[in-house]
Design a binder for these strands. Structure first.
Lengths: 189, 189
DNA sequence: TAAAAATGAATGAACGTTCAATCTAGGTGA
DNA sequence: TCACCTAGATTGAACGTTCATTCATTTTTA
């Protein structure tokens, strides 16, 4: 049973590397197999199809992102302070995990991705509740979730992505100023 | 010679429709030809390859976007007022042209796209100068172009895209409040 | 009537997926 | 301990499909 895990993750790791480098459609299954050191056929023991492989990769990456943020004591914060720290944490995670970030970006622009309705769901629901409270207390502007998201966390991902692909770097001062700007955008003044 | 133009644009128009609907990789040249009412081979009289077709489509769409904004008397505005109007105009254009917007989004996430360095270039250089001035006069925060862009115009596209794909609508009040929020983000307070 | 436009069947490469054959680990009975 | 057995793991060649592109031929244009 140990071997299954080994090969399963070896395939996922190699797939991440190649899918990000070549794009979903320019990455043949045969290449993933070769690079992972397994035969072409074996992938279909562990994954139903290429689509299934990509979907599993997505779920794994989302789960890891959640785990990383869960260890950051965000639960103790509220309102704008929570938003600011969350923004910085997500940004830091994205930049520290370029392959995962580029994969997420590509996945969300692929036919595999199923749009979910606005709001934090599943693992993230506690965040949604905190933000609802901050809106009710007039700390955060009363705008639709979609708008708040794109004004804040959406910017973190977009910025990180461009930083990765264009190999630009933001210094610490700029980063803090950007976090301030994001908070300013949704703060009730 | 008139026919060249006719067939050329017929192919481009059909391609836009199909590429957006099915994605770049699920849109065979043969289907574009069929839907455009031409033979499969003739596309290669007007375009060198599929890649060339997609690139030409991109340039055409960018040019139209520029033309649309050029007719909006933005030249008369300055600083934050300019940013606000530009944001609203771009947002309105994106929402009014869903196919073009989705194409742009897909294109920028495709291997065809070549990243350009930060700043408004070419047709847009006058915008860059106006924003430089606003930064110099401490009206707009002194942040790298990449950051300002993602805090403002990047949000317009991201919001519009989600509005299109998820068939959500922002009412006029929310839209104005969002424009305010965007300005607030980069305003020096 | 010659050049340009247009056709659409043919070509060939790429690639996801399958499957018959082979290998391996670990259990069973003597 | 060893031979045998079996189920699952693994292989990689082969299959079938899709699709971008080509080109010999026909049609249109001027």
């Amino acid at each position: 049973m140990i071997k299954i895990i080994d090969k399963h993750t070896a395939i996922l790791n190699t797939a991440l590397e190649l899918l990000v480098e070549n794009g979903f459609h320019n990455t043949p299954m045969s290449l993933i197999a070769k690079q992972a050191g397994v035969s072409a056929g074996i992938i279909y023991h562990y994954f139903e199809s290429k689509e299934d492989l990509i979907n599993q990769l997505y779920q794994q990456i989302e789960a890891k992102l959640f785990q990383a943020l869960a260890g950051n004591q965000l639960e103790q914060l509220e309102g704008i302070a929570l938003l600011r720290q969350l923004w910085l944490d997500m940004y830091a995670y994205y930049v520290a995990h370029p392959k995962e970030t580029l994969f997420l970006e590509q996945y969300k622009n692929s036919p595999f991705y199923k749009h979910q309705q606005g709001g934090f769901d599943g693992n993230w629901s506690w965040l949604g509740e905190k933000f609802q409270r901050a809106i009710a207390e007039s700390e955060i502007a009363n705008l639709p979730f979609l708008v708040v998201y794109n004004l804040t966390l959406g910017v973190a991902m977009a910025l990180a992505k461009q930083q990765i692909t264009q190999a630009i770097e933001l210094d610490e001062v700029t980063l803090q100023k950007t976090a301030d700007a994001v908070c300013q955008a949704v703060r009730v003044s």
